[in-house]
C-alpha cells in the first residue's frame, strides 16, 4: 500500500505565523518518520517561502492570506506556498543569491538559495499583482 496523504492550511500574513507554518508542516511530514535533518531542511524551506510572502508579497501588511498545501506519496513530499500578493516581475533576478529588494530590513537575500539547497526541486510561479506560488519537492532519506 503506498503511503499517501495531504493537508492544507491558510493563515494571515502575520510574521508570528512563520513559526506556526513551519511547525504545522513539520508535524504533518512527521507521519513519515523522517530524519531530524530532513525535518529541519523542510522547516527552513517553509520558513523562507512564508517569510518571502509576508515581506515581499504583502510588503509586511497583515491582512493578506497565505495558503500552504502539503502532500506526500511514499517518501516524496510536495509543498506549495501560495500568496495573493504583489507578485515578482523578474523571477530569475529574485532567485539570485544575495539579491534583495529590502535594503532597510537587513535581509541577506538568501531565501531562494536556502530553499533550493534544502529541497530537491523548487519552482516559482508568479504574476505581477496576482501573487506568487512556490512549489517544492523533497524525497526523504535521499542525500
Amino acid at each position: 500500500m503506498p503511503k499517501k496523504n495531504s493537508m492544507q492550511i491558510q493563515f494571515s500574513s502575520n510574521s508570528s505565523n512563520e513559526s506556526f507554518a513551519r511547525v504545522a508542516v513539520a508535524a504533518f511530514v512527521s507521519q513519515l518518520d523522517p530524519t531530524m535533518e530532513d525535518l529541519y531542511d523542510i522547516k527552513m524551506a517553509v520558513s523562507e517561502a512564508v517569510t518571502n510572502s509576508i515581506i515581499h508579497g504583502y510588503e509586511n501588511r497583515e491582512d493578506g492570506q497565505i495558503c500552504i498545501k502539503c502532500a506526500y506519496e511514499d517518501e516524496l513530499v510536495s509543498i506549495e506556498v501560495i500568496d495573493k500578493g504583489k507578485g515578482i516581475s523578474d523571477i530569475e533576478e529574485a532567485m539570485t543569491a544575495l539579491y534583495t529588494t529590502s535594503i532597510d530590513e537587513e535581509r541577506a537575500g538568501l531565501g531562494f538559495t536556502v530553499m533550493q539547497s534544502m529541497m530537491d526541486e523548487v519552482q516559482v510561479f508568479s504574476e505581477v499583482e496576482n501573487g506568487t506560488t512556490v512549489k517544492m519537492k523533497k524525497s526523504l532519506g535521499v542525500e
Partner: peptide, 11 residues
Amino acid sequence: FMDSSGIGMLM
C-alpha cells in the same frame, strides 16, 4: 531553529 533571517540580523 534559524533561517536566513538570522544571517541578515547578524550582517
